[in-house]
Simulated scan of single mutants.
Amino acid sequence: MNQLVRRAAFEVDSALRDDEVPNSLELYDQAASLVSAGAWSCDLSSERLAWTSGVFDLFGLANDQTPERHDIVEMYGEESRELLERRRSHAIETCSGFSLDANIVRADGIERWIRITAATRSSNGRAERLYGMKQDVTDDHARWEALRAQAECDPLTGVANRASFQRFLERRDDEPVLDCVGALVLFDMDGFKQVNDWWGHAAGDACLSAFGKRLSKTFPHARLVSRIGGDEFAVLLPQVSSRCETEAAVRSMIGNLQSPVPWNGDMLPIGVSVGLAFASEEPELDPQELFVAADRALYNAKESTSSVLVCA
């Protein structure tokens, strides 16, 4: 299918620049409708868009409307819009192409996922036109997200597993979770071994499950809540307006997080040490550096009388 789409994109580009072959566009539109796809072109000097009917259908717009790029861009989700602009700028600068799955909200309010493939036509080393294909991949995206959620979920606690956090550490440039990360909080459950020794591993699992649920409830706006080890958890917070207020908020949450867990008539104790590190103000986030700082703060917290320490 991808080879067919790429081939069609090049054929349609020829049609878009030749007004004398309307039959080519008509034939393409008929074929593209079978896969909910369409061709597009953008003149970079004027930002004028040219669409086949398939693209109008994707965005829920009437074919007789004139698409204005600044209006169309606003139909993209924030993360998709930012990623699109970065990929687009790089393609123009390097006279190259790109591929991107993007989230849009159609004119009728329906949310869809589209796959954009793009190439550049250039002259004398300068990009003059972007063109390519847009295809509806909503169903494929939903299936993929379901599989990924299953693969990246810790079944005991219900939060993300280590693989999800590892993706953050490995810093893929197109990874959405990298956007707007302001701080990393690491949690280590103190005395967890004693719970396993005294009440058994089923009791320990109950504590882990309860703690994971509490973290998800306590940090509803977190970029990621993940179990990264046996009794270790990580929470990625969005950008913060005040470091002092964020630290105070985290400290205030400790009491609820370490409330005893009811289990078979007993109350299982939970203790927790916390390491908090804030992302630097550099333009690019360094996940490894942030993790090392939070881990150092966590180690110091476990060695001190304070349950929460912030890396200086």
Rank of each mutant, 00 (worst) to 15 (best):
Val310Ser: 10
Phe219Asn: 02
Asp174Glu: 12
Glu303Met: 14
Gln258Met: 12
Ala62Glu: 11
Thr246Ala: 02
Lys302Val: 10
Leu49Lys: 00
Lys302Gln: 13
Val250Glu: 07
Asn256Val: 09
Pro260Gln: 07
Leu156Lys: 08
Val181Ser: 08
Gly255Trp: 04
Asp71Phe: 06
Ser273Leu: 12
Arg17Met: 08
Ser24Pro: 00
Gly60Asn: 06
Asp64Gln: 08
Ser226Asn: 14
Gln30Ser: 12
Ala293Ser: 12
Gln135Lys: 15
Arg106Asn: 07
Gln194Ser: 14
Trp199Ser: 00
Tyr76Phe: 15
Ile110His: 00
Glu289Leu: 12
Tyr76Gln: 03
Leu237Asp: 06
Asn23Thr: 12
Ser280Cys: 11
Phe219Ile: 02
Asp154Arg: 08
Ile270His: 01
Glu68Gln: 07
Ala8Phe: 04
Phe56Lys: 01
Glu11Tyr: 06
Val181Lys: 08
Ala234Phe: 09
Ala160His: 14
Ser164Trp: 03
Val55Cys: 13
Met133Gly: 06
Pro67Glu: 07
Ser41Met: 11
Leu16His: 05
Glu68Cys: 04
Pro283Gln: 10
Pro262Gly: 08
Asn256Gln: 13
Ala249Tyr: 02
Arg88Val: 03
Ala8Val: 05
Leu25Met: 10
Ala301Cys: 15
Arg17Cys: 06
Trp51Tyr: 13
Gly275Ser: 11
Asp154Met: 07
Leu268Lys: 01
Asp101His: 13
Ala31His: 11
Leu215His: 02
Arg106Gly: 04
Leu16Ile: 11
Asn196Trp: 00
Arg129Thr: 14
Arg148Glu: 15
Leu27Asp: 12
Gly38Gln: 05
Pro287Cys: 09
Ser80Lys: 06
Glu74Met: 07
Leu44Glu: 04
Val235Asp: 02
Pro22Asp: 00
Val274Glu: 06
Asp179Gly: 06
Ala8Tyr: 01
Cys244Leu: 11
Ala37Trp: 00
Lys134Trp: 03
Gly271Asp: 02
Leu184Asp: 06
Ala62Asn: 07
Asp57Glu: 11
Ile72Ser: 02
Asn300Ala: 13
Met75Asp: 03
Phe187Val: 04
Arg167Val: 12
Val185His: 01
Asp197Val: 08
Gly275Ile: 13
Asp231Gln: 14
Ala222Trp: 04
Asp205Arg: 03
Ala234Met: 11
Thr117Val: 09
Phe187Ile: 03
Ala102Trp: 04
Pro262Leu: 05
Phe192Cys: 00
Glu111Gln: 15
Arg167Gln: 13
Val137Gln: 05
Val73Gln: 03
Pro287Gln: 05
